[in-house]
Simulated assay, not measured.
Amino acid sequence: MKNSNRISHTGKRVISIVTILFFTLIATSYAGNPEENTYPTSERLFHIARSTNKNLVCYDVNLENGKLNTKTPLNVYWVNREERPGETNGLSYFQRKMAYGYKLVSEGDDFSEVTLTAYSGKKLKICKQDSKYVCMTTIDNQPAILESLYVQTKSGSPLSVEYVELQGISTSTGAKVSERVKK
């Protein structure tokens, strides 16, 4: 007499396969998270992630003796998240001048205002807030601390931008805010 409460060998195998597929799907989606393994530093203000690969362009505050270098407020570099995870490299001349550099707009005693080379329409203010340096800007028409930008390129054309998404924290509510700017 067969026990109806028993799961057949085939049934156990199907459950095992489904379980493996489920955990593989979770691991794959987690590995694709753009915020995973950003190798943050205590000086990191924000980073740029791109749709073309997982590498990041990082913008750290440039301090001298604990104080903002108002003439050169940012230290910009690459963080590899693919071939050599965690390895950092400086920007090339072309990358600084055409894409990922910045321009100093104004400076004060302990703040600097800059624009990004590839996105000059948005001013970024590097300043101290609650004893920590942050990058202030407007996101979705709200004053906010910038955390990251995501650049979505057009399919088949890595030099053509479809949109840029800014992400940060609203200074008035403390809530996450984002804004998508189409190019």
Results as ranks from 00 to 15, higher is better:
Y59Q: 03
D60A: 13
V61W: 00
V61S: 05
V61I: 03
N62P: 05
L63C: 10
L63E: 04
N65W: 01
N65A: 10
G66H: 06
K67G: 08
K67D: 08
N69S: 11
T70C: 06
T70G: 05
T72C: 07
P73C: 04
L74D: 01
N75W: 04
V76A: 07
V76R: 00
Y77G: 01
V79K: 05
V79D: 05
E82V: 15
E82I: 15
E83Q: 14
R84K: 13
P85A: 04
G86M: 02
G86V: 02
T88D: 07
G90A: 02
L91G: 04
S92I: 02
S92N: 10
Y93T: 12
Y93M: 09
Y93S: 11
Y93F: 12
F94M: 09
Q95I: 03
R96N: 15
R96I: 15
A99F: 14
A99N: 09
Y100Q: 09
Y100C: 02
Y102M: 06
K103I: 14
K103A: 13
V105E: 13
E107A: 11
E107M: 12
E113W: 00
V114H: 00
V114E: 03
T115I: 15
T117L: 06
S120F: 08
G121W: 11
K122S: 08
K123N: 12
K125D: 06
C127H: 03
Q129S: 15
D130S: 14
K132G: 07
Y133K: 00
C135F: 14
C135L: 08
M136S: 09
T137N: 04
T138D: 10
I139Y: 07
I139W: 06
D140E: 11
D140K: 11
D140P: 05
N141R: 05
I145Q: 06
E147M: 11
Y150E: 06
Y150V: 01
Y150H: 12
V151C: 08
V151I: 15
T153E: 13
S155H: 10
S155K: 09
